[in-house]
Design a protein around this nucleic acid. Structure first.
Lengths: 131, 131
DNA sequence: TTCGAAATATAGCCAAAGCTACATTTTCGT
DNA sequence: ACGAAAATGTAGCTTTGGCTATATTTCGAA
């Protein structure tokens, strides 16, 4: 189940890296068929997060860009937190995709504090690089 | 969006505490209307996780009980992990409800290891009781 | 330049999870 | 014992997120 947030995040990435976000690429990367992507993009438009013209790719509105930024930051923090407590990178990346949508602001702040402390001097816990 | 796993977990709780699991209670606790609960219970039956007779409550099959155990354990670990990294208990409980369904076995094992280490001697990180 | 392949769109289907409205069965109080 | 209230069930609608099949548009290569 792929959520609007994932689409927005991916579209932002594609726009930054390639200057355009094409329906087919979005579908392929998210692992859905292109009609599914098309339908969701229509919903993004309806909700004021993106604009698109037929056969001309997708672009984000201000609201879409703002959402993408928030989502990306949250995603990054979740992955880092998971790695910091010892989750293998691969699992961290994979699980974060599902987890991130359920992390509240309060929890996110806690993650941030933890990572800061952890970076500062917490050497006895989590992933140390040594088994 | 309430998943099968949540129903199974709740039904197990109700059965343990009250000896019965009634549709109305399930609906009320999960915050959905009773037709929604009824429909999901039908799905539990279809998938071999529960049995029920009209007007006579719901019971879990062996498979249902096994699932409930796994879900409960995972839920507990997720809450404990969140608290261990400094998430306030209330947020931990609330967010765990959504997060737990996306935690893989690998990640869960990592949580377990972290909590063990943390309990053993990791005193410098996470919730210490002191701000 | 034009034609075929690739990209995109559209139509229509499905299941899940939610709802309201209505029907039926139990249960409980008098 | 009976009738009303509570519990449960059923019907049918909605949205979301999938799908396949089919139509259309764009684009690149001959």
């Amino acid at each position: 189940m792929t959520l609007l947030e994932d689409y927005v995040e991916l579209i932002a990435d594609l726009l930054k890296e390639h200057g355009e976000a094409r329906t087919t690429d979005i579908a392929r990367i998210l692992g859905v068929t292109h009609p599914t992507a098309t339908k969701t993009i229509a919903r993004l438009r309806r909700e004021g997060l993106a604009v698109s013209r037929p056969y001309r790719g997708v672009f984000l509105t201000e609201a879409g860009i703002a959402l993408a930024d928030r989502v990306r930051r949250r995603h990054r923090l979740v992955v880092e937190l998971l790695i910091a407590v010892g989750v293998p990178q691969e699992s961290a990346e994979a699980d974060a995709e599902g987890i991130e949508h359920h992390v509240s602001d309060v929890t996110l702040s806690a993650f941030e504090r933890y990572l800061k402390k952890s970076a500062a001097g917490g050497r006895s816990l989590g992933a140390t690089g040594k088994p």
